[in-house]
Design a protein around this nucleic acid. Structure first.
Lengths: 225, 225
DNA sequence: GACAAGGCCTCTGTATACACTGATGCGCAA
DNA sequence: TTGCGCATCAGTGTATACAGAGGCCTTGTC
């Protein structure tokens, strides 16, 4: 694996997990010393982060971690509704029924678990990730998948801001199960509707959950940010 | 302007305009000699092209121009329907009426011109570009706009494959005018419907227009392509 | 004659040196 | 005291050198 790939993934995780806060300056020399590699692969990593929209290049000041606001959450969910609804329709049209029947069954099992005392978040998150991949595969549309990849990166970042309510988690799992079932049945309309319901509830949950701090500490940049 | 920016834009144009064909290998040394700059900024340019999806990195063989097929056209229009329809809705909701009234008026004027003998393609294409920008601004969604930017890059490439029929051009202008009018009137449903109609007709036109060669000359790569 | 193995060679991946742009801070003048 | 200008410097942008990996050609053997 290339050094630039390692640096890119490490920096990306740091940004998504809020170990690197918005406004943070990512100096080339500083990061190259941190990873023990030269500036060249660091430049490549920072370039990719900028292309992802997780960082922004400021002339003469280098690369800084991009800001995230409540307005961004609204914008992200607007795009997500467009992409996820379309993806759900296409997946319902072209899916392998067995794959989504199994996913639906597993999700329904997780719903039952989540209603109990021992909430196994990890299994649910793993299932959601597998379902995302299954939908990507079913849509058979590399451009749509690429757009989804970029979007999910930003969604993961804003999701880390708020701690998901256990009740919400159980309902979200049920909603996912419903989507999987609709896709398995090949019902496009229902798959899209279920997706829209899930997104509306998810956005509602994010907006009403007490977040750590929406307004990040003022960046060291003056008017440029 | 940075050397890497110049190289990126030049290479991007070369790919979109089919001066660089799919499968073409973009050697770092070769391109650095062509632009008269060193390999470092070339690497940055190739990295950005890869992120755009216009090129692909093959281990040990460098970067090659990505393939485009009829299947890609279908996939692109699927994504476009999702993005453009959503953008039309949002634009209709948040637009500045004056901007789109003026665009509608100009487009309607162009429609009349295109029905005459002297077809001024340039003015129409310029108007379409301005309308894209106006919709981007009206949607006020940077993530949606970013997805659109990437998509339009690929669309521009496949569009260059076929020569647009003059009749189709006039109809497309009329469809654009209708979209602009609907957005100006703030009618979300009509804006989305008009967009969907326009996309269906555009795809139909692309698929039925005799293209130069869908199957490009076999790439110098064996099974990797 | 064909296939496999090994060596050579080209090209990428990385490191480092240098130049230049832009920011920052201090000093001088109004 | 404040504003403007210059100097200094930190940090990016670019060039180049070096090493390692992968491809291809050649040669030997079956």
């Amino acid at each position: 694996m290339r050094a630039s790939d390692r640096a890119y993934e490490a920096l990306r995780e740091d940004i998504v997990e809020w170990r690197l806060l918005p406004g943070q300056v990512l100096g080339e020399v500083e990061q190259s010393e941190r990873f023990g590699i030269s500036r060249t692969p660091i430049r490549e990593a920072l370039s990719r982060l900028t292309a992802d929209g997780l960082a922004e290049a400021h002339r003469g000041r280098g690369v800084v971690v991009s800001q995230v606001s409540l307005e961004d959450v609204r914008a992200l969910f607007e795009l997500r509704e467009a992409l996820d609804c379309r993806a759900a329709r296409l997946a319902a049209r072209r899916r392998d029924p067995v794959v989504f029947q199994e996913l639906a069954a597993e999700l329904e099992a997780v719903v039952a678990q989540l209603h109990g005392p021992g909430t196994d978040r990890a299994e649910y998150y793993d299932l959601v990730e597998r379902m995302d991949r299954a939908i990507d595969e079913a849509t058979a549309n590399p451009y749509l998948t690429a757009a989804q990849r970029s979007l999910r990166l930003h969604l993961a970042r804003v999701r880390r801001l708020s701690r998901t309510n256990p009740d919400r988690l159980a309902r979200a799992a049920a909603e996912h199960a419903q989507i999987a079932r609709a896709v398995a049945d090949g019902c496009e309309e229902l798959a899209e509707a279920a997706t829209r319901v899930h997104l509306a509830n998810s956005l509602q949950a994010v907006l009403t959950t007490p977040v750590r701090e929406w307004v990040q500490p003022a960046p060291p940049l003056d008017a440029a940010g």
